[in-house]
């Protein structure tokens, strides 16, 4: 299956022009400057004008460009983009709920499986070890608080805590 994207550069240029128009509309609500000096809208509007100007040039250029035309994207390519993006989004959604350890282990093992580490006996333990190392580096060494999640697994793999128990 193939997805055909025609006139991509022209479409991108038009998107930038629309974006510039949106900046002008939104910045209407910004307060005006005091004593004749420019207000908060000046700079974003200046940028938007420049973007629109260059986007129009790009549009005109793409009309004459030999490279312009139809780009076809195979479904395989879409999948190779969609799977990592969905994995990243799922990670960001789950992190505050299931905590760092579970989410990270799942993400790493899953992504490694997708990348070609087909044996779960390799991918899963590797995911657990890397997550435990990262957890200890960030939480114990760098003092960066990572979300614990409901099960407190992070605490169980904390090297500092384990050493404390042994001592």
């Amino acid at each position: 299956m193939e997805l055909h994207l025609s006139q991509v550069e022209k479409a991108t240029s038009l998107l930038f022009v629309l974006f510039s128009a949106a900046v002008f509309i939104i910045s209407n609500s910004f307060p005006s400057g005091v004593g004749g000096t420019p207000g908060p809208a000046l700079f974003p509007r200046f940028i938007a004008t420049c973007i629109a100007f260059f986007a129009i040039i790009q549009f005109a250029y793409s009309i004459h460009s030999e490279r312009e035309g139809v780009q076809s994207i195979e479904s395989d390519h879409i999948l190779r983009f969609a799977v990592p993006v969905l994995s990243l989004v799922t990670y960001a959604l789950l992190l505050p709920l299931t905590g760092f350890f579970l989410t990270t282990t799942g993400f790493l093992s899953g992504m490694m499986y997708y990348s070609g580490v087909n044996r779960i006996r390799v991918g899963l333990p590797l995911g657990i070890v890397i997550t435990a190392i990262l957890y200890n580096v960030f939480v114990q060494f760098l003092r960066v608080p990572l979300p614990e999640g409901p099960f407190g697994i992070g605490d169980a793999v904390s090297v500092g805590r384990l050493i404390g128990q042994i001592v």
Binding site: P84, F107, L108, M112, S115, V117, L126
Partner: peptide, 15 residues
Amino acid sequence: PPKYLWPMIFMLSLV
């Protein structure tokens, strides 16, 4: 092998 590397790059980026 990049199959081990890139998942870790994603991971480090997110963390």
